[in-house]
Design a protein around this nucleic acid. Structure first.
Lengths: 229, 229
DNA sequence: CTTTATAAAAATATCTACATTTTTATAAAA
DNA sequence: TTTTATAAAAATGTAGATATTTTTATAAAG
């Protein structure tokens, strides 16, 4: 009988909650995070709140200068472009390794996840985009990546994803896919899956890059509208 | 006149100090980090110490379970092998991008750093390995990587390096290079530099991988001697 | 108008006391 | 011997008080 899992301490809840709020754009890029406000919003004292912030600093979603408080990390078009390029590059590497290393179970998992994703035939709201489509979308891509059989590369991938998530959130909230757009995405995913199952590395990499970069112009426009250079 | 930089808070110093101690093996893998001991050793109270630990948890050098305290992350041969493979893969990607993107200044910087590294003609102690040779060695490799022109990929690289640093430390402390070994390393670095300057991506990648993986058998033996599977 | 100086208000960072949880030591039962 | 129960000791986590630093508001000087 293993020991029961202890109740998570307050810092853990605050970390999760604040991280989620940052990603969802509750705070503007560069916005000051004042302790008096945070204590109230997340219902805890200074100590655990500072712990949560420390972790988010380590994750680069929050910046800090001693005695000058904490701020949400900035966003910019320049960062967007470089970040998405970096993600596409790493995803290409991971995909190549997965194609070389992944077995039958890996293929089966991709097909299962692609199927679940394709079953989303209509979305009505930004909430649907986030909670329904994008969950399955992420699961699909994770299934592909898992074949690389490298926990550390997957962690680096996760970190880049976390950095990109604020930008992705802009895209997903801005964009409610029409039926036609969903159909287009379904085709993209199917074509990507085909190249992967065919173990055609070059084609898979090209499709993956194109697929990953497709939200960039949309996000760019949103950032421009918000006056972020 | 810009504002003076405020004095770093206590958590920052503790973070740096503890991180350094972990990397240098002051604590064994998996060792319990007891707050009463940490407070004394790093001369501060619970609050800032917990902040420092939070950041190290985010960096995966420390693990924690609520109510059960903190521990230094484990090490293993399995992790060593996967981590070094991941590093070699990412370094290969970064090298390929650097060769495609780097200009004349980048080449000049590599030559300068290679030159400084080659000037180390003898090392007498583990301290020399760390403070003299390895500083220049890291600077050489960083100069190469910088050409990829992707801050996010470089950050992912840094994170992998941090994960590897405990393992590297075992190697560097275990291994005081003889003059002959230094000469061999010098040749490796020169050959690597040649392939880079020749913009021969395939050859450069192959040499880089071989070079990066060369400490693995040594580290493996050290881990085995210490009973880490 | 801008700059400088000052005081007050607000924010930041840390320590300590203390409630809660976990671990350790010990004794008894199986 | 191992397992169980109990109490004591130790460790963990947090709130609140407080010292320090920064920011804001205001007035005076240039």
């Amino acid at each position: 009988m293993t020991r029961a899992s202890p109740r998570p301490n307050l810092a853990i809840g605050a970390y999760r909650h604040l991280k989620r709020d940052i990603i969802r754009g509750v705070y503007a890029p560069g916005e000051k995070l004042r302790m008096s406000d945070l204590k109230t919003r997340y219902d805890l004292g200074v100590g655990p709140m500072r712990e949560a912030l420390s972790q988010l600093v380590g994750e680069r979603l929050v910046t800090t200068v001693s005695q000058r408080g904490y701020r949400v990390a900035e966003m910019s078009i320049k960062e967007l472009e470089e970040l998405y390029d970096a993600r596409a590059q790493l995803e290409g590497l991971i995909l190549e390794l997965a194609i070389a290393r992944g077995g039958d179970d890996w293929e089966a998992e991709i097909l299962a996840k692609a199927h679940a994703l394709s079953k989303v035939v209509e979305v009505h709201s930004a909430e649907d985009m986030l909670e329904v489509w994008d969950r399955r979308h992420q699961a699909f891509h994770s299934a592909i990546a898992t074949g690389c059989d490298s926990p550390h590369l997957l962690q680096a991938r996760t970190w880049l994803f976390d950095q990109a998530e604020r930008y992705r959130h802009l895209w997903l909230c801005q964009t409610v896919f029409s039926d036609a757009a969903l159909d287009t995405k379904r085709r993209e995913h199917a074509a990507l899956t085909d190249t992967i199952l065919a173990r055609d590395t070059a084609a898979a990499r090209a499709r993956m890059r194109e697929h990953l970069m497709s939200p960039v112009p949309i996000i760019k426009r949103v950032l421009q509208q918000r006056g972020l250079a």
